[in-house]
Design a protein around this nucleic acid. Structure first.
Lengths: 240, 240
DNA sequence: AGCCGCGTGTGACGCACATCACAAACATTA
DNA sequence: TAATGTTTGTGATGTGCGTCACACGCGGCT
């Protein structure tokens, strides 16, 4: 079956082939059966906003396909991108559990398939099933872990160059884990968005890229980046 | 009963008078009974290190009395204080659940009573009890929430003045919640440590305090601070 | 008393980076 | 192909604050 946005749709979680790779989705069959009963599967186009920071929680969103940009915004219009969430991640979890407003804003960056579960249904589901509840704890632990990494990078690493280098290495290694050739990656974000990820200005990102190319550490054709000297990049990333 | 460090000790969680105020400890009696069986209650002096960032998780620590400083460190010797944890909070939770290294370093800043539970015991405890598991999820949500606040303050608010003002307001309001007179607070941290909380240098903190006093916004006698103009302080804190 | 260690106060200096202000390179639409 | 938007490249300029350097105050020693 095809969604309106030209993407194949997975009908049921039970026969989702990628389940084992999807952190949250890898639950015992019985638990999954219950989940199946309360989820709503929806397809979203690129640029759809799932929820906004400060909204009261309506429920949780499990990413099946596509990626989602999580960001926080200051009243003054400043934006910071916290994370790019991938399939298998659950969004809106802590807000849904605590009943407090969503912490971040979630916006799809390509066509996505996403399972939604209403807050009440989800809470009932949790209280009835230890396995599910434990999965949620794991998932929240993961979120906390990521947030800690973010804090570390924002608070301890100094130069913008350092943070950009770390980001590139992280992306590159994520490629490696996915079987793609490591050391080669395609940028899916604009310089502006990259700047928002590492907490600097767009111009600085541009200049840093220019510098890395001049120093033969990076090479680019279109939106494809090749890391020519990963050693040097690592040096920059861990320069205390 | 008195501990070696001149602090009264609570024998059992079941008749702990502060239980209702302690987020994690407020569990159903049956659950609490189980917890009672696996916990080890210990008294620590000031300056004790519970665990260090990067260590493999031995288990969780529930604070009964006293406060604990959570920090992260860069290989280059830089330190950032992430949080001051209070009674009712659980430390080492996400590491214990995921089996990955502790995210932060935990050090007592005054004499503490703390319940320790070994990793295996704790995991078994969780898998047997949905209520406990749900409490853990709540607790992790809380941790995630705090981390998000940290990210927001590090990534969006720019000037050091802004962050210091926010910190003071937060402390002051925490006093208010505890019944103490709001707008009056005693500093328990040195300028150096405050600097580590807001990610700046000690000298900057000193200068900022001097400036706030000169502008009649703050007033200090010894380690006691009085906020004379909370409006102005709020303005500084939310200056976009 | 005098000495030491620790926290604090304050000046001088420089650099990394924000900000502004364009121009050039693409992408989209009509 | 012109017309309009979006993303990128680069210079000029200013400034917040990190860093170094040193002096002062205060409490705990012996």
């Amino acid at each position: 079956m095809l969604s309106p946005y030209g993407m194949e749709i997975v009908e049921s979680c039970l026969d989702c082939k990628l389940r084992a790779d999807h952190l949250f989705c890898d639950m015992p069959p019985a638990t999954l059966q219950n989940f199946e009963g309360i989820k709503f599967s929806t397809a979203y186009p690129q640029g759809a906003v799932l929820f906004v920071e400060g909204q009261m929680p309506r429920g949780i969103f499990v990413i099946c396909k596509g990626s989602v940009k999580l960001s926080i915004n200051s009243p003054g219009g400043r934006t910071m991108i916290v994370k790019l969430a991938e399939p298998g991640e659950v969004l809106g979890l802590s807000a849904t559990i605590s009943g407090k407003p969503y912490e971040v804003t979630a916006e799809t960056i390509d066509p996505c398939q996403i399972n939604f579960v209403k807050r009440d249904d989800f809470l009932r589901f949790l209280k009835e099933d230890v396995d599910a509840c434990f999965k949620v704890a794991e998932q929240l632990g993961e979120k906390y872990h990521n947030a800690c990494k973010e804090v570390r990078s924002l608070g301890l690493s100094h130069s913008a160059a350092e943070k950009l280098a770390s980001l590139l290495l992280e992306w590159s290694s994520k490629n490696g884990a996915a079987g793609k050739p490591e050391g080669r990656l395609t940028l899916r974000l604009t310089h502006e968005e990259i700047a928002q990820m590492i907490g600097t200005s767009r111009e600085t990102v541009t200049r840093l890229f220019a510098d890395l190319k001049k120093r033969q550490i990076l090479q680019s054709k279109g939106s494809t980046l090749v890391i020519r000297n990963s050693g040097a990049l690592r040096d920059i990333a861990s320069h205390n």
